[in-house]
Design a protein around this nucleic acid. Sequence first.
DNA 1: TCCTCTTTTCGTACGTTGTACCGAAATGAG
DNA 2: CTCATTTCGGTACAACGTACGAAAAGAGGA
Lengths: 262, 262
Amino acid sequence: MTSEEGGECVSPDDDEIVRTPEITRRLALLWDPPEPKTRGRRASLTRADVVLAGIALADEGGLDALSMRRVAAALNVGAMSLYTYVPGRTELIDLMIDRAYAELDLPEAGAPWRPALSQYAHQCWMLYQRHPWILQTNMWRAPLAPHVLDAQEAGLRILVDTGPTERQVVEILSVVDNFVQGLARTAIAEDRERESTGLDSDAYWTSMSSFWADWFDVERFPTMNRIWEKGGFDDPAGPLESSLERLLDSIELTIDRARNSS
Amino acid sequence: MTSEEGGECVSPDDDEIVRTPEITRRLALLWDPPEPKTRGRRASLTRADVVLAGIALADEGGLDALSMRRVAAALNVGAMSLYTYVPGRTELIDLMIDRAYAELDLPEAGAPWRPALSQYAHQCWMLYQRHPWILQTNMWRAPLAPHVLDAQEAGLRILVDTGPTERQVVEILSVVDNFVQGLARTAIAEDRERESTGLDSDAYWTSMSSFWADWFDVERFPTMNRIWEKGGFDDPAGPLESSLERLLDSIELTIDRARNSS
DNA sequence: TCCTCTTTTCGTACGTTGTACCGAAATGAG
DNA sequence: CTCATTTCGGTACAACGTACGAAAAGAGGA
């Protein structure tokens, strides 16, 4: 956008906006569409091709399976050719995440908060099921990518006029996000462990049960044992359904209290 | 429990407990202390030495800095010697996690739930600050290690007699866990990004602000913009303090309602 | 048409990783 | 002393991300 000043980097004591090359480059990659070059040899691929191939690979093998060489092979292209479309592996993953978040079917503005928030959670849940590698990205924080922010915008919009303060809204959404991620993580964990052992579901569980038989010490973990016996650890039919409803109940309490106290 | 039958692996159609070598080996590593060998050459190190060296490395460089060669170098030992103490890198990380969780100062049984849960959350928070790499482990699920289960036992014990059902207790603790992890992730994200750019705090934020100036579209993200202007994204003094208190408030509501309805 | 400039393609190469393999060295048991 | 057992660690291999630079391909200007 602002394109005055040819200098890329400005002296740090300048009061103007400082643009660090590294940060700028990474963000530009996500926000500026690749400008079509009119000169020179024509590219045989598009950036989207590379991103999609990467997603396909990661979908079935996790992030470990996402090597530049393998992506290139999937596209019938030399490994180093990828660097024409993508600066490096890290940035490829950024682009993959953005692309994946674009799949979300987000609730529209003005919908009642509870079904909307439920839809938001379900959509995220399904996204993590389709693309488990999203949860494998170091993900200290989701990248500042357009479609990621779209999701956040939609999530915040659901709650912003329901009563709680702005900061509470941010916190509530963050709790929902982390809740869904946590649930998705353990669900994926079981899938992955099961298929890595090559056992079917029953065999896997009886195999895991050897742990309880051999090492679990009831005296050391009495509470866990008690909860286990009462079925507190049993997976309900839908992992999300029941527990999400209870989380929404608790959010409803918070919202009601915010409404009454105002 | 049932410990007859010396066989390690049983045919899958057997109704007895099935022990998969892979799973068993990994769990044995965590639960069976390394038996001191009386024959042969004496070891110059202990498994604990290796684990501690690994933790030291990961503490300051993240999991990426944890290579077998570097751990070995830190111990003045050949790289391959590590494999005497640890089956491989993955298992070393398991042991590191267990060791880290042993640092937790968990609330004692019988304490009132609210301060106890607050202590639990703070302890986890501080653990993640000391050892950010814990959140970097793929962590589909925390490993079934003794000290990890100690933490879970303590967490569940806090809530198990306060009114909610067993399953609700599990869900509440899971929300707290994921809440703290999420907060820790973003806190660490900022630290890491800051130090990777080599900027001080102010320079970093003005640098990031170039994003808002160059790309952030107020019309695309009106809610985020509004919340931003109202300070909803501002970090409070203590990242945990205020938001944890609000989470505990909402848990208190749930507990009260469970009590009243029983 | 030919030249030139720009852009893509990709083979080669370097450094780093986890770890399989195997011989050498050390040590307690008999 | 002998020998079985264990630790030690060098070498080697496959796989990784990617820097470099030469080759190829196509568009614009002559």
